[in-house]
């Protein structure tokens, strides 16, 4: 294995306290295994960016006290209902929430991937979101083809994009299929850390069928092999969410004590047993 390859614990070490970390939603590619390692190492003051939302991964990191700021269009556990640790933190005022909207987050990342300072976005005018964002403003079409205000959002450059994918190869190429929000995230971030269910024996870019859905290794700083690394959420095309486990999480995460028992059992105890 090349020096690209490392352990999940090392990935967690290389995401420093205070880092701006872009995360995919639960239905895309979540590196839950690294989220657990971040909690285990006691990560602090992270600025999470949901692209465009976060789910269990965000809820867990918030509950464990790793998060200072959450920039997202939503926190959603889909059919499982409200996110308990997020709700508790929002109520207590223990995290700062930067409320956004999905297309503005995508556009901010697109500005960063193009190396430009901002991006115009349709809609949003008249939303109270605009009043609370100092990184959004309005302008006008300099070519005069459209009347009225146009929202401009500042580029979003994450320090780290953290994702889990089905396949990565020895050159750090990471296959994401049609989950191309992860491509934009990788392009936009200073560094991208990837965990992969499986290491592909060959060059993903040499395969005409796989290459179009592959993040080139040039954007990838480190890879760690982690079978089932998205568990307990699902991974597209591979496995679904672990329903019983997620229901157990929800039940426990309703209280501080219950959530602590969850972390003890699934984050700290496995770590101590290593």
């Amino acid at each position: 294995m090349s020096e690209l390859f490392t352990s999940v614990e090392d990935l967690a070490e290389r995401i420093p306290d205070g880092a701006k970390v872009a995360l995919a939603p639960d239905y895309s590619g979540c590196s839950m295994v690294t989220a657990r390692a971040l909690i285990a190492r006691g990560a602090k003051d992270l600025h999470l960016i949901g692209v465009p939302s976060v789910g269990f991964q965000g809820d867990m990191l918030i509950g464990a006290g790793c998060v200072e700021t959450l920039e997202t269009a939503a926190v959603t556990l889909d059919e499982y209902g409200p996110a308990p640790r997020f709700m508790a933190a929002a109520k207590a005022g223990s995290i700062k929430v930067i409320d956004g909207t999905c297309p503005a987050i995508h556009a901010g990342l697109q500005a960063a991937e193009k190396g430009i300072p901002f991006m115009p976005v349709r809609g949003i005018v008249g939303s109270d979101l605009l009043k609370h964002r100092d990184d959004w403003t309005t302008g006008t079409d300099p070519f005069g083809e459209q009347d009225g205000p146009l929202v401009l959002v500042k580029a979003i450059q994450p320090d780290v994009t953290l994702i889990h994918v089905p396949l990565a190869d020895r050159n750090g190429n990471a296959w994401i299929g049609v989950r191309r929000e992860m491509m934009v995230m990788a392009h936009a971030a200073r560094e991208t850390f990837v965990t992969a269910d499986e290491i592909y024996d060959g060059d993903l870019l040499a395969d005409e069928q796989l290459a179009p859905g592959t993040i080139p290794g040039l954007y990838v700083s480190a890879v760690s092999q982690a079978a089932n690394g998205a568990w307990p959420v699902g991974l597209f095309g591979r496995y679904g969410p672990d329903d019983a486990h997620l229901r157990d999480y929800l039940e426990r995460a309703r209280t501080d004590e219950g959530f602590a028992s969850y972390l003890d059992e699934f984050v700290y105890a496995p770590k101590a047993a290593e």
């Binding site: 269009a73 409320d99 976005v121 349709r122 008249g126 939303s127």
Partner: peptide
Amino acid sequence: YPNTKVRFPGSFGSAYLYLL
């Protein structure tokens, strides 16, 4: 806002799609 008494999940894409 931002000192909400009850917090909802967030705006998702509504601020954009409602206009378009």
